[in-house]
Design a protein around this nucleic acid. Structure first.
Lengths: 139, 139
DNA sequence: CTATCAACTTGCATATTGCAAGTTGATAGG
DNA sequence: CCTATCAACTTGCAATATGCAAGTTGATAG
């Protein structure tokens, strides 16, 4: 019921990637975990785009079952859980980088949210390393 | 009605990219145009994943209105039209490459459809150049 | 044993998807 | 000029998914 990708996969790596991330929200969530430093459910809910709570829960389940994120208890606050990218999830850093470069080059907007574009453009290796080391970059 | 992305965009380049390509089919179509050498509506319909005709028409309209593909008459066959990637669409080559590398690394399948993975891995520059020059790479 | 609060779930209206079948329109052949 | 052909689509409709608002859960602090 939470499997996603009703249809059979073709075996193509792009089709596989889309079965995991091919919707309007999954990459936004990955971005928030990788770049914006979101760690809790509440922080993810509070992102720029305003995902609704049922969709967030559903997507987190899907991302978790596909090995992109994992959940653990917050040792500092018994109430909250901490979501983080797994190594597989952090390996999406180059994908994020290329999407940001493409989107930034063709996006009309020059809102402050375009900041990531400048970051990747000026030092892509650093951008990717920061995600790999699980650091926050900005905000 | 064919606008896609009901919700407002945040201004983030990733969100912009997702408003254009963030669904189960758009990147499959781009792949078929960029890598598999599909040129006509019928060839796109006949892809590995079996998109249905109404969805294909809708997505082509969306990709066209977002400047990713363009349609022209086939000079050799008055009946058929030819779809091709625009420069903006061809600039997705690095995105495709990274997705293929990620998907290929984590995809269980080793069907012949995984061929693109080997191609990108062994000579990524050539892979991207082929798309930029609007050549077909394989099959 | 009650209040708190992060993390969800549920109900329901609206929107999107997918299958199957039908339509359109330019022209080639009769 | 009239009919068959065929690539490129529409259309109808049932099944799914999305999104909003409101409600529930469960551990623990006081």
């Amino acid at each position: 019921m939470s499997t996603k990708s009703k249809r059979n996969l073709s075996g193509c790596p792009i089709d596989y990637a889309l079965s995991v991330l091919g919707d309007r929200w999954s990459l936004i969530i990955v971005r928030d975990l990788a770049i914006r430093g979101a760690k809790t459910y509440a922080e993810l809910l509070d992102g720029w785009e305003g995902i609704s709570t049922n969709i967030l829960a559903q997507r987190m389940r899907h991302l978790e079952s596909n090995g992109i994120v994992e959940k653990r208890k917050n040792p500092a606050n018994w109430r909250s859980s901490i979501y983080e990218l797994t190594p597989k999830g952090r390996d999406l850093a180059p994908v994020l980088a290329e999407i940001i470069l493409w989107g930034g080059a063709y996006n009309e907007s020059d809102s402050p949210k375009n900041e990531a574009y400048d970051t990747v453009k000026s030092d892509r290796a650093k951008f990717e390393a920061a995600i790999r080391e699980n650091d926050e970059i900005a905000q």
